[in-house]
Amino acid sequence: MNLLEAQQLSVSYGQNKVVHEVNFHVKDGEIVILMGPNGAGKSTVLRALFGLVPHTHGEVELNGKRLHPRPHKMVEGGVSFVPQGNTIFSNMSIEENLLMGAFHEEEQLKVEERLEEVFQFFPMLARKRQQSAFAMSGGERQILALARALMTSPRLLMLDEPSIGLAPKIVQEVFDKIKEINQVFGTAVVVVEHNLKTLLQIAHRGYILVAGKIMLEGPVEKLRDSDVLEKAFFGELG
């Protein structure tokens, strides 16, 4: 059984169809990438899966159960989403940022336990736990967002272009952390990305999306070796 699955997913903005009958799935413990050139609809697919935008056609199944995605339903179902760009609460402390991640959990004791677990995994955040997140650099914010997403002990992490705006060295750190999360906690990850070189190192499987349609999917080796990838990015497809 797939952890998250979409069949014939389509999304339109008004009259404009941007995602065309996409079939997608991710299994427990997998790292899956969604790649493609600008405007291919990758973010849209991710957001539609999480319920941030409505889909006009198709079905989504979480843990084998059909559902109409809505953020709070997905969070309850064990999915955490890290949106593109503006991903933290700048005027709150690091600790508060993490606590907000676990907001829907009512039992305070569980939340506090999880907080310490997450801090252990991210020692550099633990050191500044009471500090405001305001002065954090781009890379630090991304790490904080990742940590925040882990607060719900999710089975699936959805990341929308985590490397955007970050220096290459920081990007490597972020992707290393993602790989660590996957290995230590067994969390599945779906990443929408541009930055392929590093990503291809950590992912298991991927989809190449061009103009809202899936051009190729499969294990990472297959994608790397095919020329579809190159063609997609040089605009020869779609």
């Binding site: 941030l52 933290i88 609460f89 829907h104």
Partner: peptide, 10 residues
């Protein structure tokens, strides 16, 4: 602080 993000958090 960040209304979009609170929606994402459910």
């Amino acid at each position: 602080d960040n209304q979009e993000l609170t929606k994402v958090l459910g």
